[in-house]
Design a protein around this nucleic acid. Structure first.
Length: 535
RNA sequence: GGUGCUAUCGUCUAGUGGCCUAGGACAACGGCCUCUCACGCCGUAAACCCCGGUUCGAGUCCGGGUAGCACUACCA
């Protein structure tokens, strides 16, 4: 009897909790730090947040976490917003690019959305923690701390050591005030109560338990720049911005218990967001987190857009500039750590929004598989129209001195060659001979396909071609093949020699497709040129 | 060192106790197509980290090892 009562009680509270969770509006945030280009791992975090928000009809916020004034990089904020815009990761609230411009706008009623503009807000909450005894003021200088760490192995500022340090727990109140008035630099530290198992519920990993003994008294605020640290700002902002789910990288898992403790200290445990810690993106070779250096070393971008770092003068390559299509990057990234229920690999953004689910996110880190990224781009490239690709190809053409080309012709040659490239710029290697007559002939092709009889064959072919009634593929094929058959020549040897004359090598699309684009005059001209240069 | 997380083909992964002789994709290799090079198509090779336990039955659950990673700042 008792047992049943208890069970129904559990069911009731469970149902109630479920209703509460379900009724809560889904609000997630992507909160990058403007310390440089947005790392591809950050892009994936943003994507998963976006997919989750859209799926639940909730809000995707963008907040800038610039609480480290020393690490700010000019242009980083604009870069982040432009990258998200390029990828189609829409922002509902916070900072975003004004539609169709590069201008930044702030939308929403929970602002400001830059932490550096929220100083006043944090003051109030630092005071609350100080007043409630959950935090204290510490005067130890960085040098003193460093000396302490050097002297004592595994030194940690916590319940065991805080009474030996220079802080408001060990210094009389009047003296503390005097020091502050004197302008002495101080920090506010969170007072972690020892010996408590802190439970963090993670949507991907389940229950994670960490004992508070291993947590140190984290710095929450520094008077030096009048800014909070990440931990404080993050909790205050997520609470004030009514964030329902915190979806972030696994590197935050160890500090999640601290965050739970902070929510409790503020008395916000009832509205604390749900947590989901995403697996990390790893180096393609060896082990470890994917870094900017790996991209340089292995020759692929680790950033969405090219970035010119004004602070250190470095330039980092980007997916966009390397010829990637945004939908390919999205698809590729989505599958690095998440997988749908079936064997489907190609997903549009809308399909991802429909299918995405946090409980299908893997727990283990994913090695960055650049080769597969290429394949995705190949797939999406085939889906684009020739006209669209022609527009995208323009900069590459210009780089090779082809200005103001005939766009219809560009689209036509792209249609002939796009299935053999992964990226738009690679189109040049496949189509260059359409734009420029060969200036030299590939040695290997010559050795294999240009025989003793070739000059004679080409001379005869020239005559045959001169006399055709119409320059279309069908006619040409009929006449030339007929001539080859009548003369009992080898089709391969004649056609390949012909190809070398037109292309400069034994490669390229079907020969009649080439002659069609080139036209009669140019075709004959190229054969004549080759005849002169190869005899 | 401490704490936590993780562990299926080379890589991304499917797998939620019997549908597993472990499935798909990328890459690799072979073949077909063909005037060439590609694309495409077809096929081949390729994995449950180890040791125990639970169970009639374990890739799947549990324990222990091992390994990898993350964190361990007045960085985020």
């Amino acid at each position: 009897m008792c047992k049943y009562l208890r069970m129904s009680f559990f069911y009731c509270t469970f149902a109630l909790a479920k209703v509460l969770i379900m009724e809560r509006r889904v609000r997630v945030r992507f909160a990058p730090s403007p310390t440089g280009a947005l790392h591809i791992g950050g892009v994936r975090t943003a994507l998963y947040n976006y997919l989750f928000a859209r799926q639940h009809g909730g809000d995707m916020l963008l907040r800038i976490e610039d609480t480290d004034s020393t690490r700010f990089v000019p242009g980083a904020e604009e870069y982040i917003l432009e990258a998200l815009d390029w990828l189609g990761i829409g922002i509902d609230e916070g900072l975003r690019q004004k539609k169709g411009t590069k201008e930044i706008e702030a939308v929403g009623s929970h602002g400001p959305y830059r932490q550096s503009e929220r100083r006043e807000i944090y003051h109030q909450y630092v005071k609350q923690l100080l007043d409630s005894g959950h935090a204290y003021i510490a005067f130890d200088t960085p040098e003193e701390l460093e000396a302490k760490r050097a002297a004592i192995p595994n030194f940690q500022y916590d319940a065991r050591t805080r009474m030996e340090m220079r802080n408001s727990l060990t210094i009389p109140a009047e003296e503390v005030q005097a020091l502050i008035d004197k302008g002495e630099k101080y920090v506010v530290r969170f007072k972690v109560e020892p010996n408590e198992d802190v439970h963090v519920h993670d949507l991907i990993r389940g229950e994670v338990v960490i004992n508070s003994n291993i947590l140190d008294d984290k710095v929450l605020y520094k008077s030096a720049d009048d800014l909070p640290t990440y931990h404080l700002a993050n909790i205050v902002d997520d609470h004030l911005m009514e964030i329902s789910h915190v979806i972030r990288g696994e590197e935050w898992l160890p500090s999640a218990p601290l965050h739970v403790l902070l929510y409790r200290a503020f008395g916000w445990q009832d509205t604390m967001p749900e947590f989901a810690h995403l697996p990390l993106l790893l180096k393609p070779d060896g082990n470890g987190k994917l870094s900017k250096r790996d991209g340089d070393r292995l020759g692929f971008p680790v950033f969405p857009l090219e970035f010119h770092n004004q602070k250190d003068g470095t330039v980092s390559s980007g997916y966009r500039e390397s010829g990637y299509l945004p939908e390919a990057v999205i698809n590729f990234l989505a599958l690095l750590g998440w997988h749908g229920t079936g064997d489907q690999e190609m997903y549009t953004m809308d399909e991802l929004i429909k299918e995405f689910s946090l409980d299908r996110v893997s727990k283990a880190g994913a090695k960055f598989d650049y080769e597969k990224g290429k394949w995705f781009n190949h797939q999406y490239l085939q889906l684009r129209s020739n006209e669209e690709l022609a527009q995208m190809f323009l900069p590459t053409l210009a780089a090779h001195g082809i200005e103001n080309p005939d766009m219809q012709m560009v689209a036509q040659v792209i249609g002939l060659t796009k299935d053999r490239v992964n990226f738009v710029p690679e189109l040049w290697e496949q189509t260059n001979f359409f734009f420029v007559a060969p200036t030299e002939y590939d040695e290997k092709s010559l050795a294999k396909r240009w025989k003793e009889d070739s000059p004679r064959h080409m001379t005869e072919l020239l005559e045959v071609l001169e006399g055709v009634p119409s320059w279309d593929a069908e006619t040409l094929d009929g006449i030339v093949m007929g001539w080859i058959a009548a003369k009992e020549y080898g089709v391969g040897i004649v056609m390949n020699a012909f190809r070398i004359c037109l292309v400069g090598a034994a490669r390229g699309p079907h020969i009649w497709a080439i002659t069609d684009v080139l036209g009669k005059d140019e075709t004959l001209k190229r054969v004549k040129t080759a005849l002169i240069r190869l005899t």
